[in-house]
Design a binder for these strands. Structure first.
Lengths: 246, 246
DNA sequence: GCAAAAGTGTTGTCCTTACACCCATGC
DNA sequence: GCATGGGTGTAAGGACAACACTTTTGC
């Protein structure tokens, strides 16, 4: 029963005090975020990495990470880290997973929440180059600092699944693109070779492509037709749309 | 260049000290795990909830959660919480997402990582009943403590997607089950009628079913064969396994 | 014997795959 | 004219959907 002699304000204060005491009793842990920024360029899937700060991992590649500030949520932390490390903003980051093995960081226990994104390298010029910030081809990375190679592998699988469920690929292309460009995206991300004729048939059947009457120009071969992605058709057909299977 | 006057041991010690100092400089945060245990019974999707401990949320439903201990990874913490709250062990928990809004807990900042599972209510008798631990129908829960309703919604969506990609349905069945029982689960969850012969063929082809030499008993019709789920086969074939499409 | 569900094969359709030749452009 | 990739059709095989009758048990 509520004691009606107490004001509502007092009641709340006491209640909050209980909750605060509870929270104070919890052990606390250093928290970081790491960003796995995938990019597509020159027909290869790349990822944005730096050289590790730590002497222990001297020369090794590391994801873009930092600790989470005291009153910052993880989404904000990830966006802040990305901006601080690369100068990029307005990147759509998605939370992938939280990694928490107690020995994953040599300096002691650190829990990290990983965010990933996929963007067009040409549309996001790197403004900073601290710690040798660079794009590396994903399939050429053998070793990384911490557990970052494992994290990268998890994120690569995440991306491969994600791109088959959702047409993220179109984000990587200009508004008008050729089927070859589209196919390159899928081949690079899924790490497979696809048959050109079957690929065209599949996308033709999906009906998300609008045929412009334009062609490629200044290419050293027969120019291909240019298409646009039909967002309206996609939204309408989305409910019946299971995915893109190769 | 490495200073060859230093022993390797000294070098490592210095390196570790750098890493430790770095980690000590990070702010720390109270971390919890919450478990969203879905159950299927009487043709309804249910979830295991308790009444909140906090006076502020008096009478409101809460997920099963606790703080993460100092040297425990999140997977272990989730399993421990589940065991402490319900007595259950050997439940396959999957990490869903980490929630971190600074104001999500009235006692101050608490970051929580959420795990979910799906199991058969009848095969997991609740051994404890503290805080009125009970199964509630998911679609009848309007309000919960903290941001737990939001978390539940996220997990429900996660489950609907997940069950189409992975054979979680086996979690809902006894160790030995008939094909009819298996088919009932899929029909109920996917809300479709399936052809018995095609259903059997599909699962036979997948090779995850072990034929026991036992039959149903005490049924008022011809008894069916009982099968077990072959976890080993599933793990091996998993990489090629795309999903269960009906 | 009757009700109720188990068990079992075949066929047509559709989707996926594999595969080869001519065409348009830049140089 | 030659190098480069664009554009196109067809056939075989595999997966899926549709479909009906006989069998085994409890009552």
């Amino acid at each position: 029963m509520i004691d009606t002699n107490k004001s509502v304000a007092t009641e709340l204060a006491i209640v909050d005090k209980d909750a605060m005491e509870l929270v104070y009793s919890y052990p606390t842990v250093p928290l970081t975020v790491d960003c796995v920024i995938f990019g597509f360029d020159e027909n290869a899937l790349k990822v944005l990495v730096i050289k590790s700060d730590l002497a222990q991992f001297h020369g090794q590649l590391s994801l873009l990470g930092d600790n989470v500030q005291s009153n910052e949520d993880l989404d904000n932390a990830a966006n802040r880290v990305l901006k601080q490390r690369t100068g990029m903003s307005n990147v759509f980051l998605e939370q992938v997973r939280t990694f928490s093995k107690p020995d994953r960081h040599p300096g002691g226990r650190v829990v990290t929440t990983v965010y990933a994104s996929l963007l067009n390298i040409k549309h996001h010029e790197l403004l900073l180059h601290d710690n040798e910030l660079k794009w590396h081809a994903v399939n050429q990375i053998q070793e990384m600092a911490f557990d970052h190679k494992h994290i990268l592998d998890v994120c690569t699988q995440w991306l491969q699944k994600r791109i088959q469920e959702h047409p993220l690929a179109f984000n990587l292309l200009p508004v008008k693109f050729s089927l070859r460009q589209l196919q390159n995206v899928y081949e690079a991300i899924l790490d497979v070779k696809l048959d050109r004729r079957n690929f065209r048939k599949k996308f033709a059947a999906m009906g998300f492509l609008n045929d412009t009457d334009e062609m490629e120009t200044h290419v050293t071969h027969r120019p291909g037709k240019l298409y646009t992605f039909d967002f309206v058709q996609y939204q309408q057909k989305k409910k019946n749309f299971i995915g893109i299977d190769f």
